[in-house]
């Protein structure tokens, strides 16, 4: 195995696209090193992207943010602008693992690991985030929901890597939130996760909403029916119940050691409803 720490994106792409056999990007390493240790992956080349200028920075851009792919959860959590604009995204990122994991784990890594239970992904999808993908053929910008395609699988092509995550400008009277269910209070993989972002008009009527669920399908899913249940309402109890029911209906989970199908379906609705209530509060400026 070879370890490389290029200092430019170009250098990284060249390494990843080379004939090195199996290549893996190392950002926070909190998934990759575990997979290597447990023999689930044996890369021939590891490309550490943390020495690339720009990959470790959060930049305010056109009212939104550009988050370098190697920015850790802890760094994100300490960024006042992000905390104010997209608290749901920050909270989701900061739920991943422990303080120790937070010091390393990145949004891009969480996304590219392509776990259906990834905590930050429902929040990113709800926030309408996109990623900058760079590869041998240049750059492209892709909505977050198009990156994971199944457990452990992404739409990235050979030689491509995520360079940054783009958060849009937060519209006025908007709020986002992410909640998950875990058996303990920390350190677990989400049994169900729900991210909600919504925008109110001046009358307090919901004009836009995005709802995404984690750990209820082969990848994180967006739930248009749940969004529709909120839009045009004052996000009252009845709307929330309809949204919760839509969420439960959209689930196609499996039974596994972390939870049953039945439980996931039920709790997906509960969490989405609670997350929406928090997002609503935030949209109302409370």
């Amino acid at each position: 195995m070879r370890y490389e720490a290029p200092t430019t994106v170009k250098g990284a792409v060249k390494l990843l696209a080379g004939k090195a056999g199996l290549a893996r990007v190392l950002a926070g390493g909190t998934d990759l090193l575990v997979q290597m240790r447990t023999d689930r992956v044996a890369p021939d080349l590891i490309v550490d992207v943390k020495r690339i200028a720009g990959m470790r920075r959060i930049e305010a851009k056109a009212g939104g943010f550009r988050i370098g792919a190697a920015v850790s959860g802890a760094e994100l959590g300490e960024h006042k602008g992000m905390r104010k604009a997209w608290p749901g995204v920050v909270e989701a990122a900061c739920l991943i693992g422990s303080t120790q994991v937070q010091g390393r784990a990145t949004l891009a890594g969480n996304l590219c690991n392509a776990s259906p239970a990834a905590d930050s992904v429902p929040a990113l999808i709800a926030a309408g985030a996109a990623v900058v993908v760079v590869g041998p053929r240049g750059r492209r910008t892709v909505p977050v929901e198009q990156i994971p395609v199944g457990p452990g699988r992404t739409s990235l092509k050979r030689g491509e890597l995520v360079e940054a995550i783009l958060l849009p400008k937060r519209p006025p009277r908007s709020g986002d939130a992410y909640l998950r269910f875990i058996p303990r209070s920390e350190m677990d993989i989400a049994v169900v996760g729900a991210g909600v972002s919504l925008t109110l008009d001046r009358q307090g009527v919901c004009s836009a909403a995005r709802v995404a669920l984690g750990a209820v399908a082969e990848r994180v899913i967006r739930v248009p029916e749940a969004e529709a249940a909120l839009i045009g309402t004052k996000v009252d109890g009845e709307a929330l119940e309809r949204m919760a029911a839509s969420c439960s209906a959209a689930c196609r989970p499996i039974d596994d050691k972390r939870g049953t199908r039945e439980f996931r379906i039920k709790v997906a609705g509960v969490l989405a409803r609670r997350a929406a209530a928090i997002a609503l509060k935030r949209a109302r400026g409370k």
């Binding site: 370890y3 994991v101 390393r104």
Partner: peptide, 22 residues
């Protein structure tokens, strides 16, 4: 695997699991 923290060290002042750092 980064689940117990017994290997905690700081890296540039931030606490990390040294089992998850090369």
């Amino acid at each position: 695997t980064g689940d117990c923290g017994a290997c905690s060290v700081t890296l540039d002042g931030r606490v990390v699991c040294s089992c998850l750092v090369l």
